[in-house]
Structures are given as structure tokens and as C-alpha cells.
């Protein structure tokens, strides 16, 4: 069955979203926003388990509070993306969704991706969107109150919100159940073991980790042994004697290094393919941009008679 938090919050959020998208008037719009916010808060509070305090007695931790704030921010901004009548504002609110998402990635321990997403999405992709929005400046005949008619009126908001609600309830219910099988202690151990194995690929990091335990010692390559989340390795000490050391947990490699090792070691072919995809996209974009479009005489005349347009011809 669908968890009650999701069902109640989702229904409230859908009603609010519908009111926002229908643009019935100022009061209805505001009321819709408030209802949607209530629904969203109910969903997020349910997701964070605020109704039932943690089993380990910790209740609400700092990452959880950060994640809650980021969730509120990203849900609100996403709603504005799809309801804002001005495309430029929609794009700017999308940047907000990305930034809030990055706060979530940080709480989930994906530091590299958090910053990569800010650079690539908020920095590069959204700038492209902005350029296209400016290039496709709306014709003056469509302007009325700052935004075009097709931006102010949604198409079938009721059907769209219904599809969104059904999709949300089904996806969120499946994911909600999936977390029940989560075992933090075992997972943390697996994660540590994988990080140590990644460390085996990093000679410099390995030397530093050995130095931290026994200064002056050098590791013997290929002798690392990982079990139960702990790593040990044979070393040659400064005076030439051999020893077997257990590495300190504080010298575990950071997220960026482990992601890099995983990327290059486990997915080398995909990495090459990603490069090919980017190259093809670049070629495709150039080909698309070069194409000239032959307008009919009537269309040309209409373009040139429009004030402030067609100056480049």
C-alpha cells in the first residue's frame, strides 16, 4: 500500500499545483501555492521520518536538517519552473533546483558530483538555455504583459498534474520500501572495503597511509589485504626489516579519488563512449546551426516589416 504521508501530501500538493497552473486569479494562485507547499512539506517530513524518532536515539541529525531544507528549496523551485509564465525565470529557478540538489549530494557524500553538477549544469547548460531564450526572442505580436500567450496558459493542467501524481505515488512507494532493506553497519563496512581497494590503485596515497602509521616505512606493492572494512599491508621499515601494518581509517581516500578510480577501472569503455557522444553532439550542433532555412516570400515580407527584426539579413 501507498504510505499515508505520501498519499496525503501528494494529493494536497497536486491540488495546489493545479490551482497554481490554472491561473484563475491572484487569490486562487496564492492559495494554490500555499496548499502545494503544505503538501510538499507533508511529503518531505514523512520521507525524513520526522513522525518517528530514529532507532539509534539520534532523532534529527544535522545532515538530515540540511537535506530537508534543500528538499523544500528544490521542490518549491521545481514548482516555479513549471508554473512561471516567463521562460527566463523558469531557467533561473532551474539553477536553484540544481544548487539545492547539490546540497543533497553533499549530505549523501558525493562531493565531486555536487561541484561537477554546479559547474556543468548551472554554469554551462543553463547558459546555453539563456542564449537560446534570447535568440528566440518572442515576436512582438505575441507580447502581452511581458510573456507570450502560450507561456501564460498551460495545456491540460489537470491531466498533466494527474499523470504527475500517479507517477509520483508509484515511484515514491517503490523507493520508500527499498530503504527498509538498508543495513547501515554492513553498508558502511562494504563502502570502507571498496575505498581501501581503490586505494590499492593509488601508490602515492598508499605511501602516505603507511607513513601515517609508521614513519619512514615503504609499502610492498600488491600485498594489501582487506577484510571487514579494515586494510593491512606488508611494509619495509626504515631499517630494512619487514612488518605487517594495519592502516588508519583517517587515511581513507576522499570521494573524488575513489570515484576517479571507479570510473577508470570499472568503466573504461563507457568513458571512451562518453567522449564519442560529446564529439558527435558537437558536430551535430554545428551542422544544425549551419543549416539555412528558405522562407517563402510572404514569410520574408512579414519578417522584414516587423519592427526591430531581420536587421542581420
Amino acid at each position: 500500500m501507498v504510505p499515508t504521508e505520501l498519499l496525503a501530501g501528494g494529493a494536497l500538493g497536486a491540488v495546489g499545483l493545479l490551482l497554481v497552473m490554472l491561473r484563475g486569479g491572484h487569490v486562487l494562485h496564492r492559495a494554490g501555492g500555499a496548499i502545494a507547499a503544505l503538501g510538499g512539506l507533508a511529503i518531505l517530513a514523512g520521507g525524513a521520518g520526522l513522525g518517528a524518532p530514529g532507532a539509534d536515539g539520534s532523532g534529527v541529525s544535522i545532515p538530515l536538517v540540511v537535506a530537508l531544507l534543500a528538499g523544500v528549496l528544490s521542490a518549491a523551485a521545481a514548482t516555479r519552473v513549471i508554473s512561471s509564465p516567463r521562460p527566463v525565470l523558469a531557467a533561473i529557478f532551474f539553477v536553484l533546483v540544481v544548487v539545492a540538489g547539490c546540497a543533497l549530494y553533499l549530505t549523501l557524500g558525493a562531493e565531486f558530483l555536487a561541484f561537477a553538477l554546479v559547474i556543468v549544469y548551472a554554469g554551462a547548460i543553463l547558459i546555453t538555455y539563456m542564449f537560446v531564450l534570447m535568440l528566440a526572442q518572442q515576436a512582438s505580436g505575441e507580447r502581452d504583459g511581458g510573456s507570450a500567450e502560450y507561456d501564460r496558459n498551460s495545456r491540460d493542467p489537470m491531466a498533466a498534474v494527474f499523470v504527475g501524481l500517479v507517477l509520483f505515488l508509484s515511484i515514491a512507494t517503490v523507493m520508500w520500501r527499498a530503504v527498509d532493506s538498508y543495513d547501515p553497519a554492513t553498508t558502511a563496512q562494504i563502502q570502507r572495503a571498496r575505498s581501501w581497494i581503490a586505494m590499492g590503485e593509488l601508490p602515492k596515497g598508499m605511501r602516505e597511509a603507511v607513513e601515517a602509521v609508521s614513519p619512514g616505512a615503504t609499502p610492498v606493492p600488491g600485498t594489501m589485504h582487506v577484510s571487514g572494512g579494515e586494510a593491512s599491508i606488508d611494509v619495509t621499515a626504515a631499517d630494512g626489516t619487514s612488518a605487517h601494518l594495519t592502516l588508519l581509517e583517517s587515511s581513507l581516500p576522499p570521494n573524488t579519488q575513489t570515484v576517479g578510480v571507479a570510473l577508470v577501472n570499472q568503466f573504461p569503455v563507457s568513458l571512451e563512449l562518453a567522449g564519442v557522444i560529446l564529439l558527435m553532439a558537437m558536430l551535430g550542433a554545428v551542422v544544425l546551426a549551419r543549416r539555412q532555412i528558405d522562407l517563402g516570400d510572404a514569410q520574408k515580407a512579414a519578417l522584414h516589416s516587423r519592427p526591430g527584426a531581420g536587421g542581420a539579413e
Partner: peptide, 16 residues
Amino acid sequence: ALIRLALVIAALLFSI
């Protein structure tokens, strides 16, 4: 709780 919250936000973003 953190993971469940992140998953719920993911579903919310996708359906919005």
C-alpha cells in the same frame, strides 16, 4: 531517513 528523504525528493522532482 536521509536516504529515504533523498529518494522522495527524487521522485518529486521527476514527477514535477
